[in-house]
């Protein structure tokens, strides 16, 4: 087929990290080969059409036993927006005590995805 190109991808779904060969015309996927499971096929198609990633980072926390609290996106974000999203976290500051899975930033860049804490943090001295 004219215009069809072969792409070699590494699946990030699990530690196996299958090498997947995708034939695609532009972002339209024609065939997927080399994946050991269904998740690999889904990943390969998404990766060609609209790659998505989970974002993990930390934000400042006041009065906590530590000075940073780890956070993640509640769902995958478009890969191209990751750096912009991290910049939005730079100025954020939350207060201890705080529970695990508390939202610290809602509806990031209109994606409907929140940034949530991935641990609880007690107040210092308690």
């Amino acid at each position: 087929m004219s215009g069809a190109k072969e792409h070699i991808l590494t699946c990030i779904n699990c530690p196996m990290g299958c090498t997947i060969t995708v034939k695609a015309k532009g972002s339209k996927v024609l065939s997927v080969d080399g994946n050991e499971c269904k998740a690999g096929e889904k990943y390969a198609i998404l990766e060609m059409e609209h790659p998505m990633r989970i974002l993990t980072s930390t934000v400042k926390v006041k009065n906590g036993i530590l000075s940073r609290i780890p956070v993640r996106s509640s769902a995958e974000l478009p890969k191209g927006n990751i750096r912009e999203c991290v910049r939005l976290l730079n100025d954020l500051e939350v207060n201890a005590p705080i529970d695990i899975h508390s939202p610290v930033l809602k509806d990031l860049l209109g994606t409907g995805v929140d940034i949530i804490t991935t641990r609880s943090m007690e107040r210092d001295g308690e």
């Binding site: 991808l9 590494t10 990030i12 779904n13 299958c18």
Partner: peptide, 12 residues
């Protein structure tokens, strides 16, 4: 290291 980290940490 694991192949997935070559992809999501380096190539990305």
């Amino acid at each position: 290291g694991l192949p997935r980290n070559v992809q999501q940490c380096l190539r990305d």
